Amino acid sequence: MSAKIGQPILTSGQRVQQQPPRQRPQHLCIRPLTVYDLDQVEALEASGFDDAERASREKLKYRLIACPELSSGLFVREFEDIGAEAVEKNAPSANKKTKKDKDDSDDEEDDGEFILPPPRSTVKKETLIGHVIGTKMYDQKITERSMGIPKLTDDYLPDSSVPGNDKIGHIEASRVIGIHSVVIHQNYRGLKLGSLLVKDYLQKMNQQCVADRVVLIAKSKLVPFYKNIEFVDDGISDCKFADSEWHDLHCVLTHEEDEDDM
């Protein structure tokens, strides 16, 4: 008797126990990143890139302070276990019926007692499993200076006295967003969370009209992924970041409004 590699040899009466299909985790949340997420962002960056390709903590901190609205994080949220009694206890007394109220409403239809949730967030933990990190940039394509950090003042602003400093790092007046990092934690890959995160990012940048163009560099194996989400391959990049060959890609933001917008 023989069997294909990876398949068990079965005797009479035995059946293969199928592994349950992988599913997206519950309670996913996409929100802008802040500098308070720095530790998780740095850890995720370290897990997703080689030493030569990952952004330093200093660069990540700069980007999350200079333009947090241009970075998105994909989180799995965990909530406190709030039982019915705890919910009722936290509900304002105005929403609770007294015995007299109930007696007076005997002739009325009873739709059930409305109880408000606790007057605070019940989120107890957010675990970062994916992120997109971006800045606005002086150049039309990713360059070494677009990925850099300008000389900063004590107020964490670009020092205007330094020549060429106005072309390095985040340029607020620019209409071009450069994406410097897209990563999904290895435990959650294969669930199409990367495309979910990037599509959400592009939609938000488009709706907010903060830029007209989004650019990035990617290795050849990832070009099809980006082409499937509306990026155009502009060929081999002049940027030799980490001594590697990259492709320039861009996506035009159209700012088209939905017909059903209010």
Rank of each mutant, 00 (worst) to 15 (best):
I171R: 01
A242W: 02
L193W: 14
K204G: 05
D154W: 06
I142Q: 15
E144D: 15
E245W: 04
S146Q: 04
K136M: 11
R213M: 10
D243Q: 10
S146W: 05
Y226P: 04
A242Y: 10
D234V: 10
P163G: 10
H250T: 05
Q140G: 15
L197D: 02
F241K: 01
A242R: 07
N206W: 15
N165G: 10
C209E: 15
V223H: 06
Q208P: 01
K151M: 12
V182M: 05
D139H: 07
E172I: 08
E144N: 15
I229M: 00
N187I: 15
G148T: 03
D233E: 12
H170D: 00
G235V: 11
I133H: 05
D154R: 07
S161C: 07
S146L: 10
K141P: 05
Q208L: 06
A173D: 14
L202T: 07
G164D: 08
S220V: 08
E245R: 04
R145W: 08
V176Q: 03
T153I: 10
K141C: 05
I229H: 03
V132N: 02
S161I: 09
M147R: 03
V198F: 07
V183N: 08
L222P: 00
F225S: 09
Q207R: 12
T153S: 02
I229T: 00
G134K: 02
Q203L: 12
Y188L: 09
N206P: 14
L196R: 11
V182S: 00
F225I: 11
S220I: 11
E245D: 14
H185Y: 03
I168N: 07
Q140C: 14
Y188T: 13
H247C: 07
M147S: 12
M205G: 02
L216Y: 00
D139C: 03
I168G: 01
D243G: 08
S181V: 15
V162K: 10
S244Y: 12
I168S: 04
K240E: 00
G169L: 06
K199T: 07
G194F: 08
T153A: 06
G194M: 06
A211R: 13
F225E: 04
C209K: 14
Q140L: 11
E230R: 15
S160H: 14
I149G: 00
K167L: 11
L249N: 04
V162W: 00
D155C: 11
I133N: 02
H250K: 09
N206T: 10
V198S: 05
K151R: 09
Q140T: 14
F241G: 01
T143W: 02
D154K: 10
T135K: 05
W246N: 03
K192P: 15
G178W: 08
H170I: 01
S146T: 06
L196P: 09
N165D: 06
V162I: 00
G178C: 09
H185A: 10
